[in-house]
Nucleic acid binder design. Sequence first.
DNA 1: TTAAATATTGAACATCTGTTCATTAAAATC
DNA 2: GATTTTAATGAACAGATGTTCAATATTTAA
Lengths: 193, 193
Amino acid sequence: MRTTDLRIIKTKQALHNALLTLLIQKPLEQISIAEICREAKVNRGTFYLHYEQKEGLFEEYFQEIMEDLYQSYEEPYRAVTTLDTNQLDPNTIRIFHHIERYKMFYRIVFSKNVPLTYYYMLFDGIYSLLERDITSHHEHQMADNISIGYYSAYQANAIIGLIIQWYRGDFSDSVTVLNQQLAAILKNVRSGG
Amino acid sequence: MRTTDLRIIKTKQALHNALLTLLIQKPLEQISIAEICREAKVNRGTFYLHYEQKEGLFEEYFQEIMEDLYQSYEEPYRAVTTLDTNQLDPNTIRIFHHIERYKMFYRIVFSKNVPLTYYYMLFDGIYSLLERDITSHHEHQMADNISIGYYSAYQANAIIGLIIQWYRGDFSDSVTVLNQQLAAILKNVRSGG
DNA sequence: TTAAATATTGAACATCTGTTCATTAAAATC
DNA sequence: GATTTTAATGAACAGATGTTCAATATTTAA
């Protein structure tokens, strides 16, 4: 029974809450570690016992949000939940819904003064979903000179490209529009333009 | 004749040189503004007269490097220099050469503790080259329900996806491999997998 | 060459960072 | 419940940040 010390849980919770409270008031880059600690009533030294930067704290939230993304694809009753862009029905794509749901959050993730870490977390998330799809759907086999790594990276980041464009329009387009765009792009590309 | 004040030029040059000197010794994140100013023999207050963060200084270098990317596509004697992935001959793609040439630099750009700004600069660069190709090559017309914005963002970021994968393997693959992978992926996608 | 314009400087300030350490408090284990 | 283990605290430190200001130096324009 290897449970985490209660004090650690309490401290982290207090820091999480403090960060959330402050994020409502101002962007992450304007929040200092000292401020978070004051708000959380936690000694500043204690913060450094658990994290190196405020970004580490933010990262813990991201983990939870990534869980939501993964779970979208774990629904057992969903017949086709493939992310593979070669056999993709845009209605099965849950990513844009996921982004929409956590819009507030992704506004931070995509803001320009934030470290690349978060971007990579999203990238890795989509990448691994894609990679799983590609390797599991054996019926669809690729030219064997294509590296699955490069292929997944290409497709994953292409989707994030759409999300960046979406973000830059302040997410004003609907999820449906995004799904349609993706479907149209894939169709267009396949037919050779 | 609206020339910049000589003093400004001198100051910026000193700061540029100082940053370069320090970047050889340690990563950007470990370099402080105070340190740059000491090295450049420039008053710290002066730094803030021109920049907000050390990242702004780094950004100025990036502009120059982006110039190289643009110029690759401006060579007038190159018959087809299209970036349009629908009519792409990988030999005409200069991007991977460009990245290779500035490898040292892009190692910083893609490192995880660096702000997203640089990523966006690269993205915007590729995006605008792509967008220009797509709108200029009229013979190739897309389904008109596709937004050029989304389409360009998709394609531009897909290419960066390859670069991320490349970076993560510490750029150990050759430019040729990257060009081949891109060609293979595009061919594979078009033929419907 | 002189006068006007403006960039740089040094000094100061409150605040933040990252780290250390002995002390205190709380939790886990017996 | 007492004991051991470990987390949290407060205080202190050198250094960094971001800002302001009057004084000075350099450049530009007349």
